[in-house]
């Protein structure tokens, strides 16, 4: 299995943490994102697009992901009742896993399509990493505005090790 990226959203819908395990984008991967608009064959998208995804690009991606999971979660709750929970969705290219805590903290993980349910994995990340290294950190603020207190060394290291252990 392959893990592509991981996001945490707080209860104010803000993306407070994001990490990508994708290999550094080559020319071929950089031009797939703006693909729907780039219909001009005379201008190959590689020449107009900077190679590494910019901070703006990845923050736009996080916003799109939040919008998607938020809409799908509301849709699922409407159809399946208030006790129902959105778990995952799959397209032909990737699979998105979702886990929401009681305090509306949302964990999202993008993996390849062959991966089975990652709900317990996201739950483990919440219990063993988030609670241990972010919540129990006395220097960490209560609200993580702009990602304050999340990007500490122990959390990042633990997360990276945990996810690489899965792959």
């Amino acid at each position: 299995m392959v893990v592509y990226s991981f996001y945490i959203f707080d209860r104010h819908t803000e993306c407070i943490y994001s990490k990508s395990w994708l290999p550094p984008p080559s020319a071929s991967s950089a031009d797939t994102l703006p693909h729907p608009q780039s219909s001009h064959p005379h201008h190959p998208p590689t020449s107009t697009q900077p190679l590494p995804p910019t901070a703006k690009q990845s923050s736009d991606n996080a916003k799109l992901i939040f919008g998607t999971v938020f809409s799908l979660r509301n849709m699922v709750r409407k159809l399946g009742g208030l006790d129902d929970a959105f778990i995952s969705y799959r397209t032909a290219q990737y699979k998105l896993h979702y886990y929401e805590t009681a305090s509306n903290l949302r964990f999202v993980m993008l993996t390849d399509v062959a991966t089975l349910s990652m709900r317990n994995v996201l739950h483990q990340i919440y219990i063993n990493l988030w609670v241990e290294y972010v919540v129990k950190n006395p220097l960490s603020p209560v609200e993580h505005k702009g990602g304050d207190g999340v990007r500490n060394e122990l959390f990042e290291l633990g997360l990276d090790q945990f996810v690489r252990g899965l792959m």
């Binding site: 990508s20 071929s28 031009d31 797939t32 780039s38 590689t46 397209t91 990737y94």
Partner: peptide
């Protein structure tokens, strides 16, 4: 949106435009 979020490059998408 889910179609646009695709994190993996699609083989052939680049070669064709080039």
């Amino acid at each position: 949106i889910t179609a646009r979020l695709n994190p993996v490059p699609i083989p052939g998408a680049n070669r064709n435009s080039a």
